[in-house]
Design a protein around this nucleic acid. Structure first.
Length: 445
DNA sequence: ATTGCCGGGAG
DNA sequence: CTCCCGGCAAT
């Protein structure tokens, strides 16, 4: 992210694992405590490789009591993988089906071939589908919540949703992470490969900051003095933010601009809910191939619900429509060409994957934040309002680093990748691309 | 040194 | 296609 530093090894506490319950089924939970019998407290980062280390698992289900396990009994990142695991009938598993994570129940597990007969609960149809899956293809943990699920129950992402700008933050996220690319090749620079999760993580802090701001200044004050002060702001966050905007017109930032400093002011303005709009707003459907646009929020949501998503079902989270449209302000003459570009494109991986990343990496980020307890500086998040914020001079376009040397190479994103998340020892958990030394699709942009 | 991943090769 | 890996760039 913006720290520029790699995170130290994450503490194992908080790691999501699956462990065997009394009934022979695996249940999800997280490491709640680590007990190391060895009288050597020298290793304080919880990665104590004593064979007798016991891990207290707190299960997600309130019905189950905490229990201690050895590492060999636990399944999850940092522990054993699925190989060799024997699943009983009725075991709840998770797998990716049609690009979404769905849950399923094991009907049968062939220990010889490690093939599972599972019955999945498709989110899109009432009927349960029986499916044959390899053991490796299923997970015991709901590793990456699908967006709708993430929205349904209490999720960390919720925390980022403060009352004021409720849902706006997520509504801005659905936008394609990077412009003009259907392939993995990306333009020379964009903050779009920033970890969205991390950005969310920053949201908390940022929102806190905003609250403070609003206490000390009038709501509409354009910009508090010293807002752009780097000392109070993580440098990475700001610098990454301004690299996000690419445009065909590399107009340099105004040299004398008072907020020439990395365009933070712009970000802040964008974060701020704008009550009075100067320009009219259209809502554009971002469903692939769809160009529908309308000028009311309800209309676009109705369009998406009716044309693309289908009738809402019981249990569906509301607001799912928000992932499929973008809100665009139409400037008086016409929006700059560059913006329309951004609006038109969709990410290479349609929403589900993308949203999963969002939640997934958010968790990762939060996890490490919580555990490290490091007083990280307040990061100003990069928002992704494509909404054209009036005067383009505020747009800091980093066309500067446009394509100097390596045109094809994607800049390194600070997302955690499969390798980092699962480690070499759990290579089987990596996404395929990571396994092939290709650009990560799971935690990638 | 490590990590991410492009480019290219093998099957 | 899928899968693998050399090698380079970024960190």
């Amino acid at each position: 992210m913006s720290t520029g530093k790699r995170l130290a090894k994450r503490s194992i506490i908080g790691t999501r694992v699956a462990a065997l319950g009394d009934d022979g089924l695996y249940y999800s939970g997280m490491i709640h405590a680590v007990k190391t019998p060895a009288p050597f407290p020298e290793n304080n980062n919880c990665i104590n490789l004593t064979p007798n280390t016991r891990y207290t698992v707190r299960f997600d289900s309130v019905m189950m009591k905490n229990r201690e396990y050895r590492d060999a009994e636990l399944i999850g990142p940092g522990f054993r993988g699925m190989t060799g695991v024997r699943l009983k009938e009725g075991q709840r598993v998770f797998l990716t089906y049609n690009g979404r994570e769905v849950h399923a129940d094991v009907k049968h597990h062939d220990y010889n071939t490690d093939e599972l007969l599972v019955q999945i609960y498709s989110p899109t149809s009432e009927v349960r589908i029986e499916l044959k899956k390899k053991l490796d293809d299923v997970r015991l943990l709901e590793s990456r919540k699908s967006a709708r699920l993430a929205d349904v129950d209490t999720d960390f992402a919720r925390l980022a949703d403060m009352a004021g700008d409720r849902r706006r933050s997520s509504a801005t996220i659905e936008v394609p992470p990077s412009p003009v690319q259907s392939s993995r090749k990306r333009g020379p620079s964009s903050s779009c490969d920033q970890g969205y999760g991390e950005r969310d993580e920053q949201m908390n802090e940022c929102n806190a900051a905003l609250v403070l701001m609003s206490l000390s200044c009038s709501p509409n004050s354009p910009r508090p003095s010293g807002w752009g002060d780097r000392s109070s702001v993580s440098p990475g966050a700001s610098s990454s933010s301004d690299s996000s905007w690419r445009s065909g017109t590399p107009s340099p930032p105004p040299a004398s601009s008072s907020f020439s400093d990395e365009g933070i002011a712009m970000d802040y303005e964008e974060i701020h809910p704008r009550k009075k709009r100067i320009n009219s707003v259209v809502f554009v459907c971002t469903w692939r191939g769809c160009t529908y646009s309308t000028d009311t929020c309800t209309a676009i949501e109705a369009h998406i619900r009716n044309t693309h998503l289908g009738p809402k079902k019981e249990g569906d989270s509301d607001h799912e429509e928000e992932f499929y449209y973008t809100e665009r302000e139409v400037a008086a003459p016409a929006p700059p060409p560059t913006l329309s570009h951004r609006d038109m494109c969709r990410p290479p991986h349609e929403d589900p994957e993308y949203q999963r990343q969002l939640v997934g990496s958010f968790r990762q980020g939060l996890l490490s934040t919580l555990q490290q307890g490091t007083g990280r500086s307040v990061n100003i998040p990069v928002t992704h309002h494509w909404v054209n914020t009036h005067s383009p001079k505020h747009m800091r376009l980093s066309a500067a680093n446009g394509s100097p040397s390596s045109p094809g190479r994607r800049p390194r994103s600070d997302n955690k990748k499969c390798r980092k998340v699962y480690g070499m020892d759990q290579r089987d958990l990596w996404c395929t691309q990571c396994k092939w030394k290709k650009a990560c699709t799971r935690f990638g942009d």
